[in-house]
Design a protein around this nucleic acid. Structure first.
Length: 275
DNA sequence: TTCCAGGACCGGG
DNA sequence: CCCGGTCATGGA
């Protein structure tokens, strides 16, 4: 029994959610392939181009059949989780910092952690290192167009492109990292589907075998590509947050620490530093 | 011109 | 183990 009921009509699917803001979901640094078009957000995920619209808690996804919603988008948008309860759980773990977290959660209300394709998330966050969000988006778009469709390329397709081609496309020092990831996945020395059953620490060790994948990139991959909501990626923005709000020591936010991280990231990156 | 961006790697101490 | 330099690129 799904927790979120939906209605299929006019080539799309609609459902009610009070915890769903497309603008915040797609523009909070977890996903790099969606852009605002008019009053909706459009982009490609899981090999399909969709439009997402939300107004007064009514969310619509199109084009989308009921089957596609069941098979793909329900999990992609993490609709099984109750983000109101997650927020309460985070606050319960926040101790003396509960006021800070209440504010961050309130500001970030509407954000959800997407469960993106694991392979795409891995490459996306390899590309993200020492890079800025507009250029990350551009590089991922260029990579996807390189195979002749919008679909994100498979490991085999990336190997066909080769490191030199990636450098021509301005991936810089990340080209070799992308190739190493593609080689390990294509050869089967890394099997991404095994990660689902791994603990966070096991999965972290597994992914960091790839060149160019450190703790931060692996954490983002696990949080945004494998639904491991306890992952807490620490980047330059979160380092600032830890010093600024938590006296330099990261609190243990519990099993939904990754959601807490995203609220904090959003608040610091897009609210405190309006640019 | 220099600094910075959702970092990781490498070498030296 | 920890530290600083380095790695490509482009926008501010």
């Amino acid at each position: 029994m799904r927790k979120t009921e939906y209605l299929e009509k006019d080539g799309g699917v609609s459902f009610i959610s009070t915890e769903f803001d497309p603008g915040m979901i797609f523009d909070c640094g977890q996903c790099f392939r969606f852009d605002p078009v008019g009053d909706f957000w459009e982009g490609v995920a899981c090999g399909k181009r969709i439009r997402v619209h939300a107004k007064d808690s009514l969310v619509s996804v199109s084009p989308c059949t009921g089957k596609e919603f069941e098979d793909i988008w329900y999990d992609f948008f993490d609709l099984e989780h109750d983000y109101k309860k997650i927020g309460e759980d985070i606050i319960a773990h926040s101790g003396e910092y509960a006021p800070v977290m209440k504010k961050a959660i309130e500001t970030g209300r509407g954000i959800r952690i997407l469960k993106q394709d694991g392979w795409e998330a891995l490459i996306s966050f390899i590309i993200s290192q020492n890079n800025n969000i507009p250029r990350i988006k551009k590089l991922i778009s260029v990579l996807s167009e390189e195979t002749g469709s919008e679909r994100f390329p498979t490991p085999e397709e990336i190997l066909m492109l080769g490191e030199e081609r990636l450098k021509e496309l301005k991936f810089g020092f990340r080209a070799g990292y992308i190739i190493d990831a593609a080689e390990k996945v294509a050869s089967g020395s890394i099997v991404l589907s095994k990660i689902e059953k791994m603990s966070f620490d096991e999965a972290l060790e597994y992914l960091t075998r790839i060149k160019g994948v450190g703790v931060k990139v692996a954490s983002c991959t696990l949080l945004f590509g494998f639904g491991k909501l306890s992952a807490f990626p620490i980047d330059v923005w979160i380092k600032k947050v830890i010093d600024k709000y938590f006296d330099g020591v990261l609190p243990d936010f519990g099993e939904y620490a990754g959601v807490a991280q995203q609220y904090l990231f959003y608040n610091e990156r897009y609210v405190q530093n309006k640019s």
